[in-house]
Simulated assay, not measured.
Amino acid sequence: MSVKEHSGDYFIPDPSPWPIIGMVSLLTTLFGGVLAMNGVAIGSYIVTAGLLLFFFLLFGWFRDVIGENLNDCYNKQVDTSFRMGMFWFIASEVFFFLSFFGSLYYIRNIALPWLGGEGYLGVTNELLYNGFEAAWPTHGPGELGGDFQPMGAWGIPAMNTLILLSSGATITWAHWGLKLDNQKQLVWGLIATIALGLLFVALQAYEYGHAYSELNLTLESGAYGSTFYMLTGFHGFHVTMGAVMLMAILGRSMKSHFSAHNHFAFEAVAWYWHFVDVVWLGLFVFVYWL
């Protein structure tokens, strides 16, 4: 962007093309997705074009924001706006996962007992599904997807729990290094956090392969299979995105973009990473353990 203006105490950027580019990229991706799902060959190419345009948007918009920050365009009021924006973004993610945990609770503690004959709807459901045992994990009446084995908690899931908790410690160590102007500690702390995050994703991918090939646990394995992959899959996606954000912060850290008093971009990613850690603890307890 070119020359920036200030109005009072608040920074006002020049008119930006990025919002309209974002709208076009999302519209293109969704349109291509609809075509692809309906068997239209060109749909996959349109999806690819939309995603490439979206990545171009992220690169260009973040480049402009980074440039504005390095040119000292932002003041305390702008910093507060950034913090509030990140806070509400993480709050929306909290409710996103709460809806999934709520669906798991409803299936296990309300719908499943009804299907087994309990509650005021139990009599009707017992007639509909005679002989159904209301025990979790279940693939529901009709044994959808065939017999399967549930995923245990004390193999890879326990290892991944230790890995993510360790990554929370390494990013905190990196943050301490930043506050102390210790560039070496900052960089190595971020490298360790990224490595642990990627190891988590790799182990989860291996776990999925094991579940499909040896446990017959798939998305078609009734209520247990669908909720298992919905919760762990979305979390794995968040870990992947968090690792990408950490890579961007690592690159900026190596270029000395941050100081002890000006590093909200680092803090924002650290908040997000700690949120991902906390969500995993809930997943480990309610999906794998209980």
Rank of each mutant, 00 (worst) to 15 (best):
F62M: 06
W114N: 07
S92V: 03
F56L: 07
E68R: 15
G50I: 14
F62S: 10
L53S: 07
F87H: 15
N75T: 07
A91N: 13
G131C: 06
P141Y: 01
G50V: 05
F55I: 15
W18F: 13
G39K: 14
N125W: 11
D79I: 14
F100D: 01
R108E: 03
L26P: 01
G22I: 00
F132M: 00
L121Y: 13
F96W: 08
S92H: 10
L57K: 09
E93C: 10
P17L: 01
G67I: 02
A41M: 10
F100C: 04
V34A: 06
L57M: 04
L144P: 03
T28P: 13
H139P: 04
V65D: 01
V24S: 08
P19I: 04
P17M: 04
F89W: 15
F132G: 06
E143N: 10
F54C: 09
V24H: 05
N69S: 08
S103G: 04
G117L: 10
F100T: 00
E93L: 11
G146A: 01
L98H: 02
F31S: 09
F132D: 01
L51P: 01
I90G: 04
L127S: 09
G43N: 07
D64H: 04
L51D: 00
Y129Q: 01
V94T: 10
F96Y: 14
L127E: 07
A134W: 08
G146T: 00
F59A: 09
G33T: 06
M23C: 05
G146I: 03
T80F: 09
G33N: 05
L30Q: 01
V40T: 12
L144R: 10
G39Q: 12
L35M: 03
L127G: 04
N69P: 00
S99A: 15
E133D: 09
S25Q: 04
L144W: 09
G145Q: 00
L121M: 14
P141I: 05
R63D: 02
T29H: 11
R83D: 05
G116M: 04
